[in-house]
Each structure stands twice: as structure tokens, then as C-alpha cells.
Amino acid sequence: MPLEIMGLSKTLGDFHLRNVTLTIDDSEYFIILGPSGAGKSLLLETIAGIYSPDSGKIILDGTDITDRPARLRHIGMVYQDYMLFPYLNIEKNIGFGLRQLRHPSHDIRKATEGIASLLGITHLLSRRPDTLSGGEQQRVAIARALVIKPRILLLDEPLSALDAITHKKMRNELARIPMLTGVSVIHITHHAEDLISLGHRTAVMDNGAIVQIGSPDEIFQNPKTPFVAAFTGMENLFSGIAMDSHEGKVIRIGQVKIHVITPYTGPVQCGIRPDALIFSREPLKSSARNVLMATVTKIRRMGSIAWVVIDCGIFLTGVLTIQSLYELRIDEGDTIFIAFKASAVMVFPEETQKK
């Protein structure tokens, strides 16, 4: 594995890294997900050598680079605002790092043209940064980082400044970088949807610490904490009491009883993803153990889907396609039935909430 991060800690003003340990594999696209202030950028800048850690080690290809200067680390970095030099044309922007490393002019030109061709920006080489679109500027910034042939490419919120259409297009292009170049990518973001399109593996950060590592499916389907569940879109989170009954394990949330599969008893927090709710006009004959009568309190239409808020003694949010919404003839104020499986309920013990 090219990169090992071992027990990395750093305090910089209000930002912290707390004993971060990660490994990044060859040609891996690794996502670090977390809210603003979680320490994501501080982690990238410490890996890059901009800051020295207070403790811990950074190992690249078996060599300890913890104290090595940033320019000698063979690590490229692309910031959120791209940081292109406005007074240089695109060709010179891309070749800047090679000039700093004192490569011969003809080698710089050859390498610049090669990476520009790979990223489809050869036609931009004579232009200035202020004449480019956001997506074009991003490609140039990535080319500048890749032309030095780094072992690791660090991307700091690279899609956040782009419009929705360009964002989606650039996600597809970024996903190809490890395959095209063999470079391992570490990409930080606060957009959970980037996981599915990009990440081979993901680490979720909260308050300077890694709270879960896994594949995108593992992160979404088996969150380890309420924080991870909420941050990856589990809108329905509740506190309740887990107990044994003649019907099996249940959780009581006020007057509502929910069937669950869990080893925990006592105070817990539970979560249900919106897409786990099944809607019906009549009581469902289903293998799902939870069937509840509910009142539709609000419908939010967003493009081809609708978010439906219902009151079944607790407020839950579900999601339907617009077509399903019309076929079921569901409107605000209607009485409906919802169903969801016991296995669809994620249960977190009380001690997890206190961490």
C-alpha cells in the first residue's frame, strides 16, 4: 500500500486531528466525508506537508515522510478554489511544478502536452485562467497536480464550486483518474452522494476523528453511529427504549411500538432510511413486520421524486417517485398505511450517542 497514516494528531486553532489512522491502497479512490470543521482539510494539508503533526507518522511507499518538505513528498494537491496563477497561460500553469523542480524545458513541454491530452484540455493551453469555465479550471488544476507524477493526489472539496450539471460530469471524470494514471486519490467532501459515484472506500470524520471506514455500501447500509446515519441521509432518527416482548424485540418511541432486530435493550437511538418506507392506501399484507396507519402532513416535490412526511405517532419522512405518488393518489391530509421491515431499522446503543 502506498500510504499509511499512523496515529496522526494535530491542533491548529479550533481545528483538530485526533489519532487518525488510515491506509490508502494502490490506485484507490478514497473519500473522506464529514461536515465543515471536522478536520478534513487539516488532514490533507498535514499529509501534503504544509503542517507538521503534533504526533504520529506518515509513511509513503515504506518511507517515513513525516518530516520531509512538501515539495519532496511526491504528493499533489488541488484546492477548492484551484489556485491557478492568473498571469500565466494554461500551459505554464500546468508546468509550474516541473519548473520549480528544475526539469529541462523540453521535458516540461512534453509532460504538459501529455497530461493535457489525457485530460482533454490541449485546446486550452494558450488561454488564461480567467477565460475558462469552472470545470475547465478544475481540469487544469488537476493537470498541474498530476504532471509531477505524484504517488498520491489530494483533492480538497474539488466539486463544491461547480453547478449541478458540471458537478455530475466532473464526478465521472474524477473517477477515471486512478485507472488512467495509477495514482491513488484522497478526496474530501461533505456531499454524501459523492461516495456512490467516486469512492472505493470511505472514512467518515467527526470532530477530528475517524468514526467509520468502509465501502460506500457499508457506510450507507450499516452506519456505526447516529452521526454517520444522519450525515448519510437517514432523516428518521429517534430515541426509544428497546425491550423484549412475546413478539420479539421491539422499541417503544412514545406510544409507538416498532419491531426491530437488535441485541440491545434499554435506551437506544434508532434510524430508518426514507427509501425503506413502503406506502399504501390499504393495510399491507406483507412480510414487513411494521405496518402503521399514518396521516400525510407534507409533500415536497423535487424533480422526479417526492418527499412525503407522515404522522404515525412519530413523524417519518419517506420517498416516492412522482409517478407512484400520483398512482397512489396521495395528498396532504390523507390517511394511509406505511410498512417497513424490522431489519430496516438501524439501532444504536446509548453509549454510542455519548461519544
Results as ranks from 00 to 15, higher is better:
D217P: 07
D217C: 13
E218I: 10
F220Y: 13
F220H: 04
F220A: 09
F220Q: 02
Q221Y: 09
Q221C: 11
Q221K: 15
N222W: 01
N222K: 14
N222Y: 10
P223Q: 07
P223A: 13
P223R: 08
P223T: 06
P223D: 02
K224N: 12
K224E: 12
T225M: 07
T225E: 02
T225N: 09
P226A: 09
P226Y: 01
P226W: 01
P226I: 08
P226L: 01
F227H: 05
F227N: 04
F227I: 03
F227M: 08
V228C: 09
A229M: 05
A229I: 07
A229Q: 01
A229Y: 00
A230K: 12
A230F: 03
A230W: 01
F231R: 03
F231E: 09
T232C: 11
G233N: 07
G233K: 12
G233E: 05
M234S: 14
M234K: 03
E235K: 15
E235I: 07
E235D: 13
E235L: 13
N236L: 02
N236A: 10
N236H: 08
N236Q: 08
L237S: 04
L237W: 00
L237D: 05
F238M: 11
F238P: 05
F238C: 10
F238H: 11
F238V: 06
F238Q: 05
S239C: 12
S239T: 11
G240C: 11
G240Y: 01
G240D: 01
I241C: 07
A242I: 06
A242R: 02
A242K: 02
M243K: 15
M243C: 11
M243Y: 04
D244P: 05
D244T: 11
D244G: 14
D244S: 14
D244V: 06
S245H: 07
H246D: 15
H246E: 14
H246A: 15
E247L: 13
E247M: 13
G248M: 06
G248A: 08
G248Q: 02
V250Y: 00
V250M: 10
V250N: 00
V250I: 15
V250R: 05
I251G: 11
R252L: 12
R252C: 04
R252K: 15
I253K: 05
I253P: 02
G254W: 01
G254K: 04
G254E: 00
Q255H: 10
Q255F: 05
Q255D: 13
Q255P: 06
Q255G: 13
V256D: 01
V256Y: 00
K257Q: 12
K257L: 14
K257Y: 06
K257V: 15
K257F: 08
I258N: 05
H259T: 06
H259A: 13
V260A: 06
V260C: 03
I261N: 12
P263Y: 03
P263G: 10
Y264L: 09
T265Q: 12
T265I: 12
T265P: 04
T265D: 08
G266F: 07
P267V: 09
P267L: 12
Q269G: 14
Q269V: 15
Q269S: 15
C270M: 13
C270A: 15
C270I: 13
G271Y: 02
G271M: 10
